[in-house]
């Protein structure tokens, strides 16, 4: 086994040698070729389309409009509404899920034996349910007439009349977010439970010897250890939620009005209902740039880890 002392000079040698390495290893060219086709080509083609007036139904050829589609974006109130909705949906869902996941991971940390396994299995169940199924399940639970949630609230006397959860502009987004949070929390439970298990016993024991209280233990010992896991899982989920189409489409199709229209829903409507591929591509480029920023943040976080 290589000792730490022995490993250091080896790493130095490796770093010194990188200068002599060819800039492109022939062994990676097949992978690069595949990536160029499946990732590079669609991106380049989207960029090309984004500067054209291109409608799939039009018999005319696509027309170069320069930054015309981007200019239209700036004055399109639905685009800005969709961007705002995307931010609320993404960051709101991730923040609440992360907090819930953290709380549940801490609560179940010391549960052992059969009871612990059963609790963890139950907590992870929502993660195993396909997102479209989750969306339809909640859609029917939210129904004004015959929905389980209204039946429960009416039975408990919390509300006097059924609430139209998905059909009131102010309630639709929170209702969709609750569904998303329900589906996403198990992911955080899983990641954070694993990270909690990875905290060295010596650290915990020494804190106990110092008579650290529960809250102090959580805030000063455990949370610093969980920081990277939280950051990476949150960034992953932000990227995932930014692209979330299935849940919103199955539950509200972006309505009522535009109250749950996110960027992905707006792009879909522009491209596949209005067939305005040029304008949809311009929105897609903006969306791609935003995702790229999150991806860079994620890669940096990974490097920090």
């Amino acid at each position: 086994m290589m000792t730490r002392a022995a490993a250091l000079p080896a790493r130095k040698i490796a770093r010194r040698d990188t200068g002599k390495l060819p800039w492109l290893d022939p062994m990676v060219t097949p992978s690069l070729g595949v990536l160029a086709i499946v990732v590079g080509y669609p991106i380049v083609y989207t960029l090309v389309l984004s500067v054209q007036d291109y409608n799939l139904l039009s018999a005319e050829q696509a027309r170069f409009v320069g930054a015309g589609n981007y200019g239209r974006l700036l004055s399109d109130p639905i685009f800005w509404k969709a961007l705002g909705n995307t931010a609320i949906y993404t960051f709101g869902s991730v923040a609440v899920s992360a907090l819930l996941g953290l709380a549940l991971a801490l609560l179940t940390e010391n549960l052992g034996g059969r009871r612990g396994r059963l609790t963890r299995a139950l907590l992870l169940t929502p993660w195993a349910v396909p997102f479209v199924v989750v969306a339809f399940l909640f859609r029917y639970m939210y129904l004004q007439n015959g929905g389980a949630i209204n039946a429960l609230l009416l039975g408990a006397g919390v509300v006097s009349a059924p609430v139209s959860w998905l059909n009131v502009s102010t309630l639709a987004m929170p209702a969709v977010m609750v569904t998303n949070i329900w589906a996403m929390t198990p992911f955080f439970v899983l990641v954070l439970s694993a990270a909690l298990a990875g905290i060295p016993n010596e650290v915990i024991e020494s804190a106990r010897v110092d008579r650290a209280r529960t809250l102090s233990m959580i805030f000063h010992i455990k949370l610093p250890f969980l920081r990277n896991a939280l950051l990476i899982s949150s960034l992953l989920m932000i990227i995932g939620n930014f692209n979330d189409f299935a849940k919103i489409w199955a539950m509200t199709q972006g309505g009522p009005g535009y109250s749950t229209t996110t960027l992905v829903i707006y792009v879909y409507r522009q491209a596949f209902e209005n067939f305005a591929f040029g304008y949809a591509s311009a929105i897609g480029v903006v969306w791609l740039l935003l995702l790229l920023a999150f991806a860079i943040a994620y890669l940096r976080a990974l490097r920090m880890d």
Partner: peptide, 21 residues
């Protein structure tokens, strides 16, 4: 026609706003 498809989204979103907002 194509304008009906494009317009339907704006009109029905407006109907929904009237009905739910």
């Amino acid at each position: 026609g194509p304008a009906f498809a494009t317009g339907s989204s704006a009109i029905m979103a407006g109907v929904q706003q009237a009905v739910t907002g």
